[in-house]
Computed example of a mutant assay.
Amino acid sequence: MFPIRDHNPSGRTPYITYTLMAVNILIFLSYVGLFSDERALSRFFFDYAAIPARIVTGDGALTLVSSMFLHGGWLHLGGNMLFLYIFGDNVEDEMGHGRFLGFYLASGIAAGMIHILSAPDSIVPVVGASGAIAGVMGAYLLLFPKARIDILLILIIIFRVFPIPAWIMLALWFGMQFIGGVGSDPNAGGVAYWAHAGGFIAGILLTIPLWLRLGGPGFWRRTDGHPPHPEARYSTSRIPKVRR
């Protein structure tokens, strides 16, 4: 199940969202050649990825920031940029450009620290913007719970695009991260589930002051839980039937 777009484009150009996407892509392109040299890639990740056991000793604190701009492959990068593109613009619109950048970095750092708490002895490098983007998703859930998100559902041979409220999609995503975190060994590598869950919760908590300034429940009543912009109209996407 993949989100492909929301129905409420932002009211102004999301410069920070676009800049973050560009920076992530350009940084990935700058070292993608290292994937053909395992030793060089390991050295690069040792220097710039977040390694819990190293940070716990007081070394490499800045990697909590640098690791947010590194990715482990094309799919890792593409998936993160898709989520940032869908959810970042409206959150940036409400927060403002500068506050959104600070919020993004704070969410990413909080996600990294939660991961370190879950596996303080791990020597597995952690990379990716997922924790920061999880924070953006948490903010989106608090501000716009009823916004419509178009989902691409793939069930073996069935492909279908349909809209669902943001709170359903985001709640399912968070539930998957929580269950994944409970059922996995963070020292073994793979998906950093607790970083995702921690970033999501951090994003909600960091957005509460803004939500209260906007009116709290009154903001939801005024906007009906949607971004305060005209809703875009999309035709329903269908996969054509192929006859025998």
Rank of each mutant, 00 (worst) to 15 (best):
I201R: 04
Q177Y: 02
L62Q: 07
N187D: 14
L82S: 08
Y104G: 03
L153R: 11
S30V: 07
N8Y: 15
R5S: 06
Y234Q: 07
Y85H: 09
L214G: 01
I149E: 12
D93N: 11
L70G: 04
F83N: 09
G181E: 06
A110E: 09
A147E: 15
F100Q: 11
L117W: 07
H226W: 03
V242D: 11
V182Q: 12
D150F: 08
A110Q: 09
A166T: 11
R43L: 09
P145Q: 14
G138D: 15
V23I: 15
P14F: 04
F83E: 09
F200T: 01
W211L: 00
Y15G: 09
G73C: 07
L214C: 00
L143E: 14
S237R: 14
A49L: 01
P125T: 14
Y18A: 11
R244T: 08
N8P: 00
V136P: 09
F45K: 06
I208C: 02
V65C: 01
P165F: 01
L143T: 13
Y15W: 14
I123A: 10
N8D: 07
F100W: 05
H196K: 01
L142N: 12
A195D: 05
A195M: 03
S10H: 05
L84N: 08
F162N: 10
I16R: 03
R43H: 07
L117Q: 11
I158N: 10
G73P: 06
S66R: 13
P52H: 02
R244F: 10
I133Q: 11
I109W: 04
I109L: 02
H115V: 01
I51L: 01
F178I: 15
L117E: 12
P125L: 04
D59E: 13
L75R: 10
E92P: 01
E94T: 11
G72V: 07
L84M: 06
L141R: 13
M21K: 14
